[in-house]
């Protein structure tokens, strides 16, 4: 009776101890040196693995920073906060990292941009762009099927009425959407600048008017009114030089077609929808 209980108990204790000893020895024998700095740095990074820094993920960037291959402010998502923490670990001064955010340089939605055909294919901008450059007549317009939104690691992009919109509160400026947009209408702008041009079309004004109500007609009113000389009209579309922009918002007010967007106007739109 006692033997029936004791034998299995002893055998299992023996088996357990044996396995435990084996694993204990294995941890010593198979010990792998880890870069402690890399682990500390990885803890400071956001951990979204967005790939905005050019490395495969946060762990890869942490290793690169620890080995001195990447700068401490390489993570645009973590911004200055992460850069400072990492700089403290690495024992160097952090250069100021400019926080960026993505903006869609197109405002032609279902109602104000004309389409050349009805797209019924795979729900993906890249697929649609292969079919004659997308369904919009405008060769540079947002296709609006949300490939950017699908790839955004922070859920900051929404499709409203056939056009991608960036929620500037959620956007961390990783730039993943920029790489996925087949029409290159998403650009990174400095986070603290309010204005951006909501058009990318390089067609002439007359032609743009025929297919889009919100296309830049290159009237140069913004260029003339900008007190800082930050806006230039090249290739029939206005472009803002953010190093000169003083954030006055005059261009958005003066634009006759209201295509220079501001963060304030976007927020108003969003609130009206609610």
């Amino acid at each position: 009776m006692l033997k029936d209980i004791l034998t299995p108990a002893l055998i299992f204790v023996g088996l357990g101890v044996l396995m435990g000893a084996l694993l204990a020895v294995a941890t010593k024998v198979f010990h792998v040196e880890k870069n402690e700095k890399a682990e500390e740095i990885a803890a400071c990074l956001p951990g979204a693995n967005c790939g905005g820094c050019g490395y495969t993920g946060c762990a890869a960037l942490a290793e690169a920073i620890a080995n001195g291959e990447a700068k401490v402010n390489s993570c645009t998502v973590g911004g200055a906060e992460a850069a400072n923490k990492i700089a403290a670990i690495m024992g160097v001064e952090a250069e100021a990292a400019v926080r960026m955010r993505a903006e869609v340089m197109c405002t032609g939605n279902h109602t104000n941009a004309i389409k050349k055909y009805k797209y019924m294919g795979v729900h993906d901008c890249v697929a649609a762009s292969k079919l004659g450059g997308g369904d919009k007549v405008c060769p540079n317009g947002c296709i609006g099927l949300g490939t950017c939104a699908a790839h955004c690691p922070f859920g900051a992009i929404v499709i409203e009425n056939g056009i991608a919109r960036v929620d500037h509160k959620k956007c961390r400026g990783c730039g993943v959407c920029v790489t996925f947009c087949p029409k290159n209408v998403i650009k990174l702008v400095p986070y603290d600048k309010d204005v951006w041009v909501g058009c990318s079309s390089v067609d002439k004004g007359v032609k743009i008017k025929s297919y889009c109500e919100v296309g830049c007609i290159a009237c140069r009113i913004c260029e003339k009114n900008c007190p800082a000389g930050a806006i230039t009209v090249n290739d029939n579309v206005a472009r803002i030089d953010y190093s000169k922009c003083i954030n006055c918002g005059l261009c958005a007010e003066k634009c006759p077609r209201k295509i220079i967007e501001t963060v304030g106007r976007q927020e108003k739109l969003r609130e009206e929808k609610k």
Binding site: F12, M19, L22, L23, A26, V32
Partner: peptide, 21 residues
């Protein structure tokens, strides 16, 4: 129960072995 014990330890062991070699 014996198999669970053995398999679990084996996987742990293999994991450490692979990590090293």
């Amino acid at each position: 129960i014996a198999f669970i014990l053995v398999i679990a330890s084996l996987v742990q062991f293999i994991e450490m072995f692979l990590k090293k070699y």
